[in-house]
Design a protein around this nucleic acid. Structure first.
Lengths: 192, 192
DNA sequence: AAATTCATGTAAAGAGTTACATGATTTC
DNA sequence: GAAATCATGTAACTCTTTACATGAATTT
């Protein structure tokens, strides 16, 4: 009879996804929100603590008070059965077109307003940024790809591996695009 | 003596980019915010009208009152010299790492929580969504690619062309990634 | 006559960032 | 002893969405 009508925000599902993998304190959630998951979702602790309280009130997570440093009680959270069900239902739920906000493309859309030299320099800096992220992804994939669980679709490592693979493909494509743009800029410089 | 210290939001630069291409009423800005630019930035009219007033107060745009339907005066905006300078300076300015928020990847990161059949279905729906966007981009590129201005880096069509090219490459990569994921899911289904 | 489009605003609420606040434990 | 880390919260502000509000011109 669990109605599960609890409407949760995207942030809520990001946190549920983290806790479904491993029980954590709010502080740890904030730390983990940077490292792997931070590549596609981020939140500060000021957003995380209130959201944890909401998830708790909705019965999607539960907590135990543990020993810890700090003026307030330290709480370790984990997902409830209802929380895991809500997460799984959201994962395969309706795909609503999400509004895109990409600052990099927004800049390039106004690239015609700047001098060719400055344009080439900008694309070069974009390229360097993509390369550095790609290297990080590659290192991380190397760490998990050989683990046995990484081939099992019901193992969190499988999901980590396929999302990393997506990031790697995406950054490689961005690098190729940057190289192509520089060539286009150069071709216009010396017209034939 | 123009200090140009006017700190403008990303939305402000999106609007300046639109007006630098063509003078428009606020209503037209809201329309144009969907079509080409909407692929990488969006805003509703309730955000656009106040921002236009701020840009006006900052001297980055100016307006003339024209004939039009509606209970209030209809205003046509265009960028000022200061606005064009601010836009160009922003385009080539410092690249600050922007927080990423990608719902699609966030979902897939918790894909391990669902049944393989449901996972395959989800990836199939993702694939279809990417394909439909790719087709739209392809149509649009075909419309502008042959125009003479599209090869000139100082022409807006050049910037439209390179950003569209980026969108096309990105969606193609996403499609390949989806196909790869379905193969990975299937491989686990019948292990060797 | 009704519905849609043109046209511009404000209000309220949610999402997200930055800053403020506290205090114990651990490391240098 | 000072600095960093662990740990949890609130307040103020910005950005974004949804909803409310008005009214003329055009299309069905």
């Amino acid at each position: 009879m669990s109605d599960s009508g609890a409407t949760t925000s995207n942030l809520g599902f990001a946190i549920l996804g983290l806790l479904a993998r491993r029980a954590s304190t709010g502080y740890e959630v904030a730390q983990r929100m940077r490292q792997p998951i931070g590549y596609f979702w981020t939140a500060r602790h000021s957003q995380i603590y209130p959201e944890l309280n909401r998830l708790d009130a909705a019965g999607l997570v539960e907590h135990e008070v543990i020993d810890g440093a700090g003026p307030r009680p330290t709480k370790r959270y984990r997902t409830t059965r209802a929380g895991q069900d809500a997460l799984a239902a959201w994962v395969v739920g309706e795909l609503e077109p999400q509004p895109v906000r990409d600052l990099e493309v927004l800049r390039l859309w106004s690239l015609w307003t700047v001098e060719p030299d400055a344009a080439d320099d900008l694309v070069g800096r974009l390229e360097a940024a993509h390369r550095s992220v790609l290297d990080r992804y590659l290192d991380e994939l190397a760490e998990i790809a050989e683990e046995p669980g990484a081939r099992d679709p019901s193992n969190p490592l499988f999901a980590s591996r396929i999302t990393l693979e997506g990031g790697i493909r995406s950054r490689r494509t961005s690098l190729e695009w940057c190289a192509w743009m520089r060539a286009e800029l150069a071709a216009a410089g010396r017209p034939g």
